[in-house]
Computed example of a mutant assay.
Amino acid sequence: MVRTKLRRRAVLVGSGVVLAVLMAAVAIVQGADSGGGSDVTAVSPSRPVPAIGAGSAAQERGDTDLAAPQAGGKGAQPPGVPIGGVQRELVRTAQLTVDVGDPVAAVRQVRTAAASVGGFVTEEQSGDNGSWLVLRVPADALDRLLDEIAGYGRVTARSSQVLDATEEVVDLDARVATQTASVARVRGLLAEATSIGDVVAIESELARRESELDSLTRRLAALRDQVALSTLTVDLRGPGAATPPETQPAPGFLDGLAAGWEGLRAIGSAAAAVVGFVLPFLPVIAVLAGFALLGRRIVRTRRTAATAGAGGRSGPGSDGES
């Protein structure tokens, strides 16, 4: 019994030692993996690593577009609006309606104010009673320009909108960078091609990718232009300009009751008109109906008499024969 107990204790102790050694080995392996992963340099998706040989081949052919900074780099990004530690890309638009005493002088003032902040006029319509202008101004000067134009007269309407285009800009930025690297790789393959078939196939693929890259680049440039320059619509109205109609309130119970009463009156008027139209025809219809009833009675009387005469003739003859 004593030997059996000693053997069991020895087995338990040995199992514990083996388990402890295994746990220590697992911890050492995990520590080595985490330490090795920290040495890896993260590659930003906006700056892809160009294919080997693509840069030299492009330089030999004089392709200077590859040497330009990638979209999404620090030199290509316009100033955004930092919100919560994130550089937001905001598209701002505004509308302003001002009653002015002299629309012509006010238009000159608006042009001067837009030019002073680095903006310009894209559309303009002028008439006898006022002018309408569309301005493109730097986003950081929009509020200041609004306040300045509002001081030219009496503001009757003012509104603004903000569209957050950060996600779309980031997506297009990454797609442009990826497509640029793809074009560079295909150009490298074209430089290494030896047969005519390979050259034709690679050139076709290169043209397709360059076309897609050009489309993405234009979309990104247009979006960045909307972020950098805000759109301001200014409506300058002179003394003789017609005032816009006031916004009517939403209909209520009394409005619905009045509309229902008007509808009932309309239905009554229509019914009275129908009755008045049919009324002159009633005597004619009554006379025709009387003639129809009279003819029906005459027909019934003749049929009854004929039936009775036929029955009287057949009765005695049948008795004699019997």
Rank of each mutant, 00 (worst) to 15 (best):
T4E: 10
T4V: 12
R8C: 08
A10M: 13
L12V: 15
V13G: 04
G14A: 15
V18K: 07
L19H: 02
A24Q: 09
A24Y: 10
A25E: 15
V29A: 02
Q30S: 06
G31E: 11
A32H: 11
G35D: 04
G35S: 00
G35M: 00
G36R: 07
G37L: 08
G37E: 13
S38W: 14
V40A: 12
P45G: 06
R47W: 06
R47P: 03
V49R: 14
S56P: 07
A58W: 02
E60Q: 14
R61C: 10
G62R: 08
L66T: 00
A67R: 00
A67D: 10
A68N: 00
Q70T: 06
A71H: 02
A71L: 05
G72C: 00
A76N: 07
A76R: 11
A76L: 06
P78A: 04
P78L: 07
G80V: 04
P82D: 04
I83V: 13
G85E: 02
R88C: 01
L90N: 06
T93W: 13
D102N: 14
A106L: 06
R108E: 04
V110D: 02
V110A: 05
A113G: 06
S116F: 09
V117N: 02
G118H: 11
G118I: 11
G119H: 10
V121M: 04
E123G: 02
E124F: 00
Q125D: 04
G130A: 03
S131N: 07
S131T: 11
R136I: 13
A139D: 09
A139F: 14
A139C: 08
D143P: 06
R144C: 00
L145G: 06
L145I: 13
L146G: 06
D147I: 05
D147F: 07
I149Y: 12
I149K: 08
G151I: 11
S159R: 08
L163Q: 13
L163R: 13
A165N: 13
V170I: 13
D173K: 10
A174L: 08
A177Q: 08
A177D: 03
A177P: 12
T178L: 14
T180R: 11
A181Q: 06
V183P: 03
A184P: 09
G188K: 05
L190H: 03
S195Y: 00
G197Q: 09
V199H: 11
V200C: 01
I202T: 08
I202K: 04
I202W: 04
I202L: 07
E203T: 09
E205L: 12
D214C: 02
S215G: 12
T217Q: 05
L223C: 10
D235L: 04
D235A: 05
G238I: 03
G238K: 03
G238Q: 05
A242W: 07
T243V: 15
P245E: 03
P245Q: 04
F253P: 14
D255E: 14
D255K: 12
D255C: 10
A258H: 14
A258L: 15
R265P: 02
I267G: 02
A270S: 06
A272G: 00
A272C: 00
A273N: 07
G276M: 09
L279T: 07
L282D: 01
V284P: 05
V287F: 08
L288W: 13
A289H: 02
L293E: 01
R296G: 03
R300Y: 05
T301G: 03
R303A: 10
G309V: 14
G312K: 15
G317C: 04
G317E: 11
S318K: 09
E321A: 05
E321R: 10
E321W: 07
